[in-house]
Write a protein that binds this DNA or RNA. Structure first.
Length: 471
RNA sequence: GGUGGUAUAGCCAAGCGGUAAGGCAUGGGUCUGCAACACCCUGAUCACCGGUUCGAUUCCGGUUACCACCUCCA
């Protein structure tokens, strides 16, 4: 039975979707004001892996996510780049699509933008005002947090303290407008020159940050969903406020399972602009990092644990991935020489499948699942070395590898890499030298290739090469 | 201050009441012209103190350290 940890209850719970066989899932997407950083990527990868596992075991997943495509951060970036808010958003939406495709993250079933749901946002806020849960104040609209029973439960914060903390950082303008410092904005009046504003019953303005997610969920998934995901930092205030809005709007439970991913640290430090270690996926890939290795690194750690990113951890991920790839490649080169089916191996595969699923069913324990993957790698390597192999077994082993690794977003097991002309020439010369048993020359050529990052090894079927990624 | 989390071999990291999975690295071996790959073998009493128990890394209490949230940062 599949179990998931729920931030709301702080407990691991049996997973029961609203409708058998179907999952409604929403994950908070990025504000598109820059290239996505490792944290964004981790979140997307964590929930992509979860989604893929659900699909693997037979669920149909409706996966909805958003782009926050407006806001002061986007405006500020526009100033820097000489672009409009809309242009900035478009640019980084495209970059998001590109980067996530490289990382082999499946596109959401529905990817909605805040600006696409403006009429719905206004209606939604109107509903909250009409119910007396929100109030207008000088062109702004605020949600009355006090009217949300259990406000703050998700982050396990005491209401009075939240209120006190909020009071301590209130700016003077908002202090006048808010009835209570803990109230949060649903709508902000907008009168700045050259900044787009949308019409509303409270005058021209823009939506608050939290409302878009509630509205999109309502529109695309309905009033109650199975899983809501996002970074752990979003539990408060973002998700807390979503609960207040949605449960106020619908008078029913909003989310069955709250799932939050842990952070990515860079060289054991929090990734932040002030530390200057903000690492974007775009930059890493531009510098030649193997996207599959990056995906593997960010996906192999349990989703709630922090990940440390460094040259060292990336290197180790690359080494592990290469080992997996080599096993798969060796298997593809095996020629079946025997009919029949080795039931011992097939039986072992079934038993491994059971343990693989047990691990993933346990709140997506990827570490344990990968232990089974490495057992499979070992089994594959052993089998490839045997004297005789059977087609049925080869196929079964290959399928198992591709199926499992696909859950982790690893699909490039063969590597499409090619040698360039210079490299190919050296490689061919070495083959000749070896054939002539000129070992001095062949060793020298091997060193030359090694300097180019190509490892050459001799096998019974001749030379093989592998490009070594070192970071 | 409040809340949540984490502390296991050189590194990454499982286990969560019965004398510590896996990966990387290290060392040894087989294979190889030499290497590489692969295969085989090789390592820790689990932050500290107390308690419960026949027995605790695993439960309870306490201490210490680190991290995160309590400011639209995933």
């Amino acid at each position: 039975m599949l179990q998931t940890y729920n931030t709301y209850s702080l407990e691991q719970e049996e997973f029961q979707p609203l409708q058998a066989g179907q999952i409604k899932m929403y994950v908070c997407g990025p504000t598109v004001y820059n290239y996505i950083h490792l944290g964004n990527a981790r979140s997307a990868i964590a929930f992509d892996t979860i989604r893929r596992y659900f699909e693997y075991v037979g669920y149909k997943v409706n996966y909805v996510s958003n782009f926050t495509d407006l806001g002061d951060k986007i405006l500020a970036q526009g100033e820097k780049e000489g672009l409009t808010e809309e242009q900035v958003a478009q640019k980084y939406e495209a970059a998001f699509d590109e980067d996530t495709a490289q990382l082999n993250i499946k596109p959401a079933t529905v990817r909605s933008k805040a600006t696409e749901v403006m009429p719905e946002i206004v209606d939604y806020i109107k509903n909250l005002v009409d119910q007396g849960l929100a109030y207008e104040s000088e062109g702004d609209v605020y949600f009355s947090a006090k009217k949300s029973p259990d406000y703050g439960h998700l982050s396990h914060q005491n209401f009075d303290e939240l209120e006190e903390n909020a009071a301590g950082r209130l700016d003077p303008v908002e202090a006048k407008r808010k009835q209570d410092p803990i109230d949060f904005a649903l709508w902000k009046g907008e009168h700045r020159e050259g900044v787009k504003a949308w019409p509303s019953p409270w005058g021209p303005g823009r939506p608050g940050w939290h409302i878009e997610c509630s509205v999109m969920i309502q529109k695309y998934l309905g009033s109650e969903i199975d899983i809501h995901g996002g970074g752990i930092d979003l539990a408060f205030p973002h998700h807390t406020n979503e609960i207040a809005q949605s449960e106020g709007h619908n008078h029913e439970r909003f989310v069955r399972y709250w799932m939050h991913n842990g952070f990515v640290n860079v060289n054991n430090e929090k990734m932040s602009k002030s530390l200057g270690n903000f690492t974007t996926v775009h930059d890493l890939l531009a510098n030649g990092v193997d996207p599959q290795a990056l995906r593997y690194l960010l996906g192999k750690t349990h989703y709630r644990r922090p990940i440390n990113y460094s040259m060292d951890t990336l290197n180790q991920a690359q080494i592990e991935l290469d080992r997996i790839r080599r096993a798969y490649q060796a298997l593809t080169e095996v020629q079946a020489s025997e009919k029949g089916e080795d039931l011992t191996i097939i039986g072992r595969l079934d038993e491994m499948e059971t343990r693989f699923r047990e691990a993933m069913d346990d709140d997506f324990n990827t570490e344990n699942a990968l232990t089974v993957v490495f057992e499979l790698v070992n089994l594959v390597n052993q089998y490839s070395k045997e004297d005789k192999q059977q087609e049925t077994v080869i196929t079964a082993l290959q399928k198992k590898m591709t199926d499992w690794l696909a859950i982790f977003g690893i699909v490039d097991l063969l590597g499409q890499d090619q040698l360039n002309e210079t490299e190919q020439a050296l490689f061919d010369q070495r083959a000749e030298a070896r054939a002539a048993k000129d070992f001095a020359k062949s060793d020298q050529l091997r060193d030359q290739l090694a300097d180019l990052g190509i490892t050459v090894r001799d096998t019974s079927q001749g030379q093989k090469w592998e490009r070594k990624q070192a970071y």
